[in-house]
Nucleic acid binder design. Structure first.
Lengths: 146, 146
DNA sequence: ATTCTATTTGCTTGACGAAGAAAGCATGAG
DNA sequence: CTCATGCTTTCTTCGTCAAGCAAATAGAAT
């Protein structure tokens, strides 16, 4: 198989560096400014977008691309802060819905500007001139062999 | 501050998903095919590119965008497999060079094709039509507020 | 110049937190 | 009654931060 050419190599290294650095930076900023870890922010965000502000644990895990056990712990943390509530599922007694509380929604709305600014500074400030539609489409498939 | 538009939002979500998924997938593939975790592969790679196949611990940590203590542990693992050796630094008795052994180089060369194929499948297969030079340049800066 | 102390630098270690995999438990379906 | 499903719990692994130790460097006093 043909080795990577110089451009590909540069992309790969930059990608690797970014994947190490970006989550750390964004998490640290959000924690410093809002006392809210990025993972928790994202859970609140996905819940806020869901119908009735609720999702099954497994859906939530899938949305966040996290394991179910990881999601259990995150929701436990959020529940301890009253940002989320676990509610038994009507149609399946095994199931649980994670429901965004009013407090949780308020917290999300409060943290949102910080996160937005962080995203603009750390990501979009550097993406000028790229075709974002194409980029999004490409990124969506990265990590899948197809 | 202006919220994200649809394209930006799509990029952000895809980026987040990718950063979660890609390292896991690539690591799992390399472990399955070669019994070598991705972090260890990368350390071997950077060492193989360095003059005399050696780097100071701190340089190695910086190259991999990892903490120094993390690098200590990785090199300890690699040393236990004879892939790397710690050698005292001549000009500074506090310093250590991590040196790639012949065994380590062989291991790297053996694992290289798997990794290359994985990179092509998981990354570059989806990047057709993008300007890689621009992309690399952009990615290099992501995660820095400048 | 020499020696003594204080600060800094390079790396390792200990304690911790986050997240995954596998096992466990409860409920549902055939 | 058995097996699948949904979530939790346990155990392990990885990597960070903070503290620690050893060597180097700088400054001051002799």
């Amino acid at each position: 198989m043909r080795p990577l050419n110089a451009e590909e190599d540069a992309v790969l290294r930059a990608l690797g560096r970014m994947m190490n650095v970006l989550p750390r930076v964004m998490d640290a900023e959000l924690v410093r400014e809002q006392g809210l870890p990025l993972t928790e922010y994202l859970v609140l965000m996905y819940l806020s977008e869901a119908p009735n502000r609720r999702l099954r644990m497994s859906e939530l895990a899938a949305a966040c691309a996290l394991s179910l056990s990881g999601m259990t712990r995150i929701v436990t943390r959020l529940e301890a802060q009253d940002l989320v509530q676990r509610v038994k599922c009507d149609e399946d007694a095994r199931g649980l819905n994670a429901v965004l509380t009013d407090t949780g929604l308020a917290r999300l709305e409060q943290a949102w500007p910080s996160h937005l600014a962080s995203v603009r500074r750390n990501v979009f400030a550097h993406l000028d001139g790229l075709d974002l539609t194409r980029l999004a489409h490409a990124l969506e498939h990265i990590g899948t062999p197809g």
